[in-house]
């Protein structure tokens, strides 16, 4: 996972193709640590992820909850198979989903 700062926003670029039971623990711990340090505006670039399971979704929701109402999390670059999983789990109703990182930076609440 690459972490970059763009203005006041932290961009997490996931480099592993699978966000599953094996990967989601580390993912969650890392992001929550980041959020707890006061970074509450996050962009999650998932353009390289081609598989997410229920543990992965759970981890994403945990992070979203941690971000809280005064923060925002926008997800970009979700491929079709992962999007199908998101729709199945109604994540499309919970997450802000956009196409590109640039769109995400525009979409994120200031």
């Amino acid at each position: 996972m690459d972490i970059t700062r763009r203005d006041e926003v932290t961009v997490f670029h996931l480099r592993e193709p699978r966000l599953d039971a094996c990967a989601s623990g580390d993912f969650k711990d890392q992001l929550i640590e980041w959020v707890d340090e006061g970074n509450r505006r996050l962009v999650l670039d998932m353009s390289e992820v081609d598989f997410v399971d229920s543990s992965g979704l759970g981890a994403m929701v945990s992070v979203l909850k941690r971000v809280g109402l005064d923060g925002d999390m926008v997800i970009c670059g979700v491929c079709e198979p992962v999007m199908r999983m998101f729709r199945l789990a109604r994540m499309d109703k919970i997450f802000s989903l956009v196409t590109s990182q640039d769109d995400a930076l525009v979409a994120i609440k200031s």
Binding site: V61, A89, R90, M91, K93, I94
Partner: peptide, 9 residues
């Protein structure tokens, strides 16, 4: 959605 997320939808 997944059971356990706390009635988000």
């Amino acid at each position: 959605t997944i059971i356990g997320l706390g009635h988000v939808v």
